[in-house]
Amino acid sequence: MSQTASATPAHRATTSTGDAIFAAAAKGCGILVLVILSAIIVSLFIGGLPAFRAFGFNFLVNPDWDPVRQIFGAEVPIYGTLVTAVLGIAIAVPLAFGIAFYLTELAPEWFRRPVGTAVELLAAVPSIIYGMWGFFVVVPIMGDYVQPFMIDLFDGVPVLGTLFAGPAFGTGILTSALILAIMILPFIAATMRDVFLTVPAVFKESAYGVGCTTWEVMRSIVLPYTRASVVGGIMLGLGRALGETMAVTFVIGNTNRISTSLFGPGNTIASIVALEFPESPTGSLKLSSLLALGFLLFVISFIVLAISRLLLRTKVKS
């Protein structure tokens, strides 16, 4: 007993020191995360500063990318980034909703886990694999069958005839959007499934009790209850699609031109950075323009991801 008593002061001292060190280390690492994010923004901005200085606001709306004349503009990559991401979302959301609906309401209990796991594994496949698969499998299919068919189908139809116009290379904006859709599908589907599961069973049971069909329960009970989180999940997918690099680089055609046709080639911020970087010497205006593009991409995806987080957070709180 006396031994313990005599040991106590020293023991307490080491205890509080240990606690202080551990708490400081934890807090320090927390702050490090904030520092990393700020450093990413600042370093990209500083790197892009010469380009912003040289071209000013014009950088955003200039469609030229001309290393010979040293004129660089971001219009085409920004356009390509937004169009491929939004089209990708448009393709992925209905599929993701169908999968989430199936997994939460329709599938037999024993079947939900394997199917859910399979869909999640789709998210684990590295993006370079999507690029390679897209280039060697999807591009030929698009070029040989889908694009010629759609060009013939919509020939002469106003608007659609312009959107789906030849030549059918197989690559291009639409193919990129399709690959992006497959890549973000599992993220959106998994988020939707998880939020659909948060709907209290008693709400759904009441609706079934008054004679609603499964679809009516989904449309009138589950969707309104989870609306914010569903949008959050879609924004999460959008954020992923905006910054996707390798898969898009393989299939977009990599041309700095805005095409009126969805079959036309283009580029995105991420794809032009990945492709042009090896030919951009240190300190050149071209490298600075690429870093400026990176800064723009960061700003766009930060806004989208922040909105996504806020929308998903509200559900958790309520």
């Binding site: 807090k27 927390g30 702050i31 995360v33 904030l34 990393i36 994010l37 450093a39 990413i40 370093s43 990209l44 500083i46 790197g47 999460l236 954020g239 992923r240 905006l242 910054g243 996707e244 690099t245 991420a270 950075v273 990945a274 690429l290 870093l291 990176g294 991409l297 960061f298 995806s301 930060f302 991801l305 922040a306 996504s308 987080r309």
Partner: peptide
């Protein structure tokens, strides 16, 4: 406040384009 900020930023980093992390390390 710090905890919420760190959680938010970490979640954004989780989905941030990895190409930008490459550019960042290149820069610094």
């Amino acid at each position: 406040v710090l905890g919420n900020a760190v959680r938010f930023v970490s979640d954004v980093l989780l989905s941030a384009p990895s190409i930008l992390i490459g550019l960042f390390i290149y820069q610094i």
